[in-house]
Design a protein around this nucleic acid. Sequence first.
DNA 1: ATACAGGCTCGCC
DNA 2: GGCGAGCCTGTA
Length: 292
Amino acid sequence: MTLKEIEAADFNLALTLDSGQVFHWEPSGTGYAGMIADRAVYVEQRSEHLLVSGGAGIAVRKYLALDHPLREICAGFPDDPALNAARDYCRGLRIIRQPLWECLATFITSSMKQVAHIRQISRALRERFGASATVYGSHVYAFPSAARLAGANQKQLRDCALGYRAKNLLLTARLVSSGEAALEGWRQLPDGELRARLCELPGVGPKVANCVMLFAYERLRAFPIDVWIERVLKEKYFGRKRKITPQKLRDFCDNYFGEHGGYAQQYLFHHARRTMARKRNAKPTRQVPVSQ
DNA sequence: ATACAGGCTCGCC
DNA sequence: GGCGAGCCTGTA
């Protein structure tokens, strides 16, 4: 398998693939192996370039949103201490373009779950229902189609550790595979209508809808509010003590962060997750024993 | 061990 | 039409 070089300025692959927007890329050698839709891909970073497995260059460039004018997007953020710190910390992080169904299904399974577990669920669904392929020495699996999951039963999904989410995923898979929920057709809807349609799907509320809008529909204004970002916003923009209603918070996010609010959200989110998580692990439990 | 996670839904008021 | 409890399961 030959690797081909493509240009990737203002980009950080590791940061992008491990910032909580996508959950299936596995470390492989000095890079990552995974799937872009039905194509098995290996990709690794060499400073301002990416090395990509045969023929996948164009697909990778689109998937990783290397065409986003990242410098301008970041320069357009509001000028405040929280965002300035996050922008500095997350240099090169891009909001990627995921396949619609895969992204929707994954975020339906994400509710009340930590990243590690979302990854496990994604892998279980892929291994059990997805087509497999080999790339650059790694075995990878495609995310199963809506039709494939619609044909499964609830127990099979529960066996993938979905719990109560199994029912929602199954119902939504049926709506999508029957065409009643025309995910591709919804691309042309304005933000508000798209969000309303998504929220009609079982297991999809405002948070999941905004994630799908941001990570799959390229709505860079969409601003998902989860417990992490809520913590950050209250602390950095409202002061811990002050009480604020969810609606006020929502209005603030939609107005303050502007047309690339989703990018701002992702930067604030990832910065907070990394720095707060580190505090929690300040006393490492897995010390490497010193051999005599 | 036992809270508690990157929410949604339904039932209750 | 707002509020709170319940839902499954792995991780910390």
